[in-house]
Design a protein around this nucleic acid. Structure first.
Lengths: 346, 346
DNA sequence: ATCATCACTGACATCGATTTCAGTTTGGAG
DNA sequence: CTCCAAACTGAAATCGATGTCAGTGATGAT
C-alpha cells in the first residue's frame, strides 16, 4: 500500500505538506506532489482518516427486507442523495427480527456516522441505545415507542387504513376482513386501527375471525386468506396491509378460483410496479416511496452537518392516496350505492 | 468515546492486557476487565482496528439498480452469507452508468476488503484497476472483457436465449422480435446472440426492424414495443431480455389493447414474484437469483480467507430454465405443431 | 542593508488498538 | 528455601493521516 510518506519522499517534502496539498491548501511544490501522487497512484487510507477525524463517511441503513419493492425504492432514494456526497451506505437486513436488528445495530454504531432504521418492532428499546453511542438515528416507515425525540419520515398509516375502509364502505361492503401486519410495528398497528376504526364508526364491526394478523410476508397473506375462505361465511372484501401480503392474498384467491372482484374485493397497501398489470389490476393505498428515502437521508445528513445539527426532532408524515383499479367492486355484483365509479389504470 | 485506555485504567491494568483479554487470550485479572468493559459500555473502535489490521470487514457491492427485483434478490443472498460472518455490505448503485461505476469503485477500494460487481458495461476497464489496489473482485450476473482471471457467478445467457427461441419456434412463430438489453453487457449481448442465433439456425431471420436494443429499463421496453406495433407488419412474438423491459412490453401491449397471446406472444427473461399473477401469467426464462448472491459472496469470502485465498479464478455458470405460463401460444390462433402444451402456474 | 511581515515548512504528537520485547510474577521441582 | 521454566504483564512502537507549533525562507518597506 502506498502511503502519504511514500508520496512525500518521492516529492521531496514532508508528509505534512502532502497532507496540506491534498486538503487544498497552498503549497510551494504542488507540481512535484501532484506528480508523485499520480505516479504512485496514491489514495489516502480511509481507516487512518476515520481514526483521526472520528468520521467514517458511512451511513448505516437497516431495513426488514430489501427484496420488498417498497424498501428497495426507499434505499434507492437514499442512495440518490448520498451519490453527490462523500457518504456511502452500509446496508443490513433485519429480516423482521428484533434480535437480528439488535446484533446489526451493535455492530453498526462502531462503523457509521449515522443510522436510518425501519425498526422490526415498536417495542424494542435497543435502537435507543444507539443514541448513547452518539450516533444520530432517523426512523423511516416505522416508528419506535418512545422514539419521538428522533427524526422520522413516516406516512399517515391511520389515514391510509381509513381511506381503504371508506372505499369499501362506499362500495357497499359490510362483510370485510383485514389482514394486518405485525401489530407491534407502527404500520401494522395503525393501518389496522384506521381501517377497523373507520368501519366501526360506520356501524360495521370486524369480527375476530375476519380480523387477522400476518407478518408482512407473502406467505402469511396466502395462509390467512385460505383460512378466511374456509369460514362458513367468507368476507366479500379483504384489506391487506402491505404489498407482499396482498400478493399472497391474490395468489390464494387465484388458487381457490375466487373471482375478483366478483366474489371478493381486494384492496392492498403500497402499490407495485406490476400493480396495473395484475389480474385484476389492484386497487391500492399508495404512498411516496423513493421520496421517503430521500427525505430520511436528508434529515440524517443535516444532523451530521456541524453547522446545522442540533434542533428538535423533525417528524415528517406523508399522505397516502387511494388508487382505484379493478380489484374492488360492490359486493356480490350488487350495484354501488350512490356513487359513480371510474376504474383507473395507469 | 470510551477507549481501551479507559477500560485499562478502571480495571487497573495496561491497555495491552485489555486488548489481550478481548482477543481471547488468558489474562489474570479478567474479572476486573470484564466488569470495566460492561460498566463503561466499551466497544473497540472499528477505525482503529482497521488501521492496525488493514482489514475493514466490509464488502463493497455495486449493482446497476437495487430496485430491480433480480438484484434485490442477489443482494439478499449476499446478505444471508455475511450475516454469520463479521462482514458488512457497502451498497452502491451504478444506475447502469459506467462513469458512476468508476466513481464508486474508486471510493470503494479504499474502504472495503473485497468487491462484488455487476459491471455496467463489458468494455469498461476500470474495474480491472481494482486489482491494482489488491482488492479481490468477483463478478456477478455480468462479466467484463478481459475479466477471465476474476471469480464470477454468471448464468448461461446464451442458453437462455436459445431456450426462448426454441419455445417460440416450437409454437410455430416465424415473425419474432427481440428486445435486447444494452449490447455491451454480457447478458445484453449473449441473450440476443442465443436467441437470434437459434432462430437463424432454424432458417428464421430476425430483420433489423424486429431486432431492437433497449437499456434494461422498463421505459425502453415500452417504447420499443410501440415502435414494433407501428410497423406495417408487427411480429407475432416478442422476446424481452430482462424483467423490467418485459413489464414495459406488457404495459405497452395492454395500452394498445393487444391480446396476449392471441395477437402477440410474450416471453421474458427473469421471473418476477408477480409473474404468475399478471395478465396473462408470463412465460419466462428463469434462473437462480438469491443463490447467485450466495455463491458470489462465498467466492469472495474464500479469497479473503488467508488460508484459502490464492488459486485460479472460479467461473460459475448456472443454468436457466423455461417456465411456461400463458403469455405464449401459437401465432394467430393456429394450433401448435406437433407438441402438447401444458400451461403451468405456480 | 536591515528588519518586520507573511507564507510556507517539517518535526512531533495524536487518534485507538495491537503487537513486540523485555521484563516480572507465579508455581513447582529440587 | 532456592531456582527455573512457564505464564503473564506493561512500555513503547506501529498502522497512516492530520493538526500544532516552532520555526525557515521569502517579500517588501525603510
Amino acid at each position: 500500500m502506498v502511503t502519504i510518506h511514500d508520496v512525500a519522499a518521492r516529492a521531496g517534502v514532508s508528509p505534512a505538506t502532502v497532507s496540506r496539498f491534498l486538503r487544498g491548501q497552498r503549497v510551494r511544490s504542488y507540481e512535484a506532489i501532484q506528480a508523485a501522487v499520480d505516479e504512485l497512484g496514491y489514495w489516502p487510507s480511509a481507516a487512518a482518516q476515520s481514526l483521526k477525524s472520528g468520521r467514517t463517511n458511512t451511513i448505516g441503513v437497516v431495513v426488514p427486507d430489501i427484496t420488498n419493492p417498497y424498501f428497495a425504492a426507499v434505499v434507492k432514494g437514499m442512495e440518490s442523495v448520498t451519490r453527490t456526497e462523500p457518504y456511502r451506505i452500509l446496508l443490513a437486513n433485519s429480516d423482521e427480527s428484533g434480535e437480528q436488528e439488535d446484533d446489526v445495530l451493535a455492530d453498526l454504531v462502531r462503523r457509521v456516522d449515522g443510522i436510518i432504521l425501519a425498526p422490526a418492532t415498536e417495542q424494542d428499546q435497543t435502537p435507543l441505545h444507539v443514541r448513547d453511542a452518539d450516533v444520530p438515528l432517523v426512523f423511516v416507515d416505522r416508528d419506535l415507542a418512545g422514539g419521538e425525540r428522533f427524526d422520522a419520515v413516516l406516512v399517515d398509516n391511520d389515514g391510509g387504513g381509513k381511506q381503504a375502509a371508506e372505499h369499501l364502505l362506499a362500495l357497499g361492503h359490510t362483510k370485510v376482513a383485514a389482514i394486518s401486519g405485525t401489530l407491534d410495528t407502527t404500520p401494522g398497528r395503525l393501518r389496522r386501527e384506521g381501517f377497523v376504526g373507520t368501519l366501526a364508526k360506520a356501524g360495521i364491526e370486524v369480527p375476530p375471525e375476519y380480523d387477522l394478523v400476518g407478518d408482512f410476508k407473502e406467505h402469511s397473506g396466502y395462509q390467512l386468506t385460505l383460512s378466511l375462505l374456509s369460514l362458513p361465511e367468507p368476507p366479500t372484501a379483504i384489506f391487506a396491509a402491505n404489498n407482499l401480503m396482498t400478493l399472497g392474498v391474490l395468489k390464494a384467491l387465484h388458487d381457490m378460483r375466487i373471482d375478483i372482484p366478483g366474489q371478493i374485493s381486494l384492496i392492498g397497501f403500497d402499490d407495485l410496479d406490476t400493480g396495473p398489470l395484475l389480474r385484476p389490476p389492484l386497487t391500492v393505498i399508495d404512498r411516496p416511496m423513493v421520496e421517503q428515502g430521500v427525505l430520511a437521508m436528508r434529515l440524517l445528513l443535516r444532523r451530521l452537518d456541524p453547522d446545522e445539527a442540533g434542533g428538535s426532532a423533525s417528524r415528517i408524515v406523508l399522505d397516502t392516496k387511494l388508487i382505484e383499479r379493478a380489484s374492488t367492486a360492490p359486493p356480490g355484483g350488487w350495484p354501488a350505492p350512490s356513487r359513480t365509479r371510474k376504474t383507473r389504470s395507469r
